[in-house]
């Protein structure tokens, strides 16, 4: 999620009833070319919209009020302020959700369009699939030659877009005094195995003391990176935002004899096999940290890096 600031609802509510547009003037009077362009785009062959004396498709109501590339005329300060407030708080994206139009008079070429609009309501903060945001409903009264032509109620969602990639952060390792040396090794692209000073046994994962002789003294040896799949599972469920199931989790036996749990990559999840030779790679999984993973050798047909 982007950094989003909560706005006190009273601050938003204060915009209700204020003008969104005042004495707006349509940039062009209703005209046959714009009607024709609309009908071409919509594939609308209604003869009422063509010929010598066309009426405009009623659903064009809003089009006559649009600012186009050169921007809106008559948009009120309140509307701009409301948008600035929402933008500033992180609700930068906009999507239209509802449009309700009532038509009281046909529009014909030559009709001059004027309009006023009011901010009817601003919702409390809502969580949607697109992201959290506020719904803003405006109501516009459209006139033609000064007579009411229709009303146009429009609802938009101003929202903070949910970032799609990455889908989620990979769980972070817990680094403490007992395993800090292991993670320092990973950062230096070295997979370090503990070796007991007492009995000389290798152990992995890292522990503060030897599980065979009890000695707390140890040093490290660097793994060659060669290994084989000792066992594996394919994860289908439960899903977790950082992962894209199904994927293979392997128990890899290193050439040195100890075993490590990691992902098997470079091969489809359903082609992982016990005994498959793999080689250590380091893969960056977040901006600031990498993981030791194992790439299948030989017939591994996958395309991952």
């Amino acid at each position: 999620m982007n950094a989003v600031r909560d706005i006190a609802y009273e601050e938003l509510k204060a915009f209700e009833g204020r003008a969104a547009a005042e004495a707006g003037l349509g940039k062009d009077p209703v005209n046959a070319p714009m009607i024709r362009h609309w009908c071409e785009a919509m594939g609308d062959t209604n003869p009422a919209y063509a010929g010598a004396d066309p009426v405009a498709p009623p659903t064009m109501l809003q089009a006559w009020t649009m600012g186009g590339l050169s921007g809106h005329q008559g948009r009120s300060e309140a509307y701009d302020d409301l948008f600035a407030l929402l933008d500033g708080a992180g609700y930068t994206a906009v999507v239209a959700t509802d449009c309700e139009q009532e038509y009281v008079r046909e529009l014909r070429p030559g009709d001059e369009i004027t309009f006023d609009a009011v901010i009817e309501s601003v919702s409390e903060r809502k969580t949607t699939k697109l992201g959290a945001g506020h719904f803003v409903t405006t109501r516009m009264d459209v006139r033609a030659g000064g007579e009411p032509a229709g009303t146009h109620r429009f609802r938009i969602l101003k929202y903070a877009p949910v970032r799609r990639t990455p889908k989620g952060e990979r769980p972070r390792p817990v680094i403490n005094r007992d395993n800090a040396g292991f993670w320092e090794g990973v950062a230096a692209h070295r997979l370090l195995i503990q070796r007991c000073d007492g009995c000389g046994g290798l152990r992995f994962p890292w522990l503060p003391g030897c599980n065979a002789c009890g000695s707390p003294e140890w040093d490290t040896v660097e793994a060659s990176g060669e290994g084989t799949v000792f066992s594996y599972v394919v994860m289908h469920h439960p899903p977790f935002p950082a992962f894209d199931p199904p994927y293979a989790v392997g128990l890899v036996e290193l050439a040195e004899g100890v075993r490590i749990v990691s992902n098997i990559i470079g091969v489809p999840h359903d082609k992982v096999r016990i005994g498959m030779p793999v080689r250590l790679v380091f893969q960056r999984v977040a901006e600031e940290w990498e993981l030791p993973l194992f790439r299948a050798l030989g017939d591994g047909a996958g395309g991952e890096v």
Partner: peptide, 28 residues
């Protein structure tokens, strides 16, 4: 607006050129 136009067209395609649209309310 395009969706709105297509919905309007769908109705007038069916009911013919004398049909008068009074109200179109849509939710996306």
């Amino acid at each position: 607006l395009t969706t709105n136009g297509l919905v309007g067209r769908y109705i007038t395609d069916h009911f013919g050129p004398t049909a008068n649209l009074r109200k179109v309310a849509i939710r996306l």
